[in-house]
Structure formats: C-alpha cells, structure tokens
C-alpha cells in the first residue's frame, strides 16, 4: 500500500500525536489531583470552638 492511500482511525492519530498526549497527560492529573486537593486545603473551615 502506498503512503497516503491508507485511512487511519482517529484513535491511531491521537496515539501518534505525542504533543497532545503530553498536554492531556499533564493537565488531567493536575486538575483532578493537585488543583482539587489544593482547593480543599485552602478552604478548610476553622474548628468551631465552644467556650
């Protein structure tokens, strides 16, 4: 088969796009783990103290 005459599936194109993988690979865990976690750290309420 000659170059270009072949159809590639979208997934194959996605897997071959190392820059896209790099981008998603950084953004996804950073949002899901780090940003969400830091949000919880900095919004934790103060202990209600009953005097």
């Amino acid at each position: 088969m000659s170059e270009g005459s072949e159809e590639y599936s979208a997934v194959q194109k996605f897997y071959d796009n190392i820059w896209l993988l790099l981008g998603i690979g950084i953004v996804l865990p950073t949002v899901l783990f780090t940003v969400w976690g830091l949000y919880e750290v900095y919004t934790l309420p103060y202990l209600p103290i009953v005097k």
Binding site: I24, P29, F33, G37, E40
Partner: peptide
C-alpha cells in the same frame, strides 16, 4: 495511554488516612 492519563492520580493513596482531603 491509560498510564499517561490515569496513573498519576494514584498519588492519592498516600493521603487516604490524611485529614483535610
């Protein structure tokens, strides 16, 4: 690809018995 996308968040298992989260 599953590793790239999903394996990193497993960092959480170090924090399972932490307060705050």
């Amino acid at each position: 690809v599953l590793y790239i996308l999903f394996i990193n968040v497993a960092s959480e298992h170090h924090l399972l018995v932490d307060p705050v989260f």
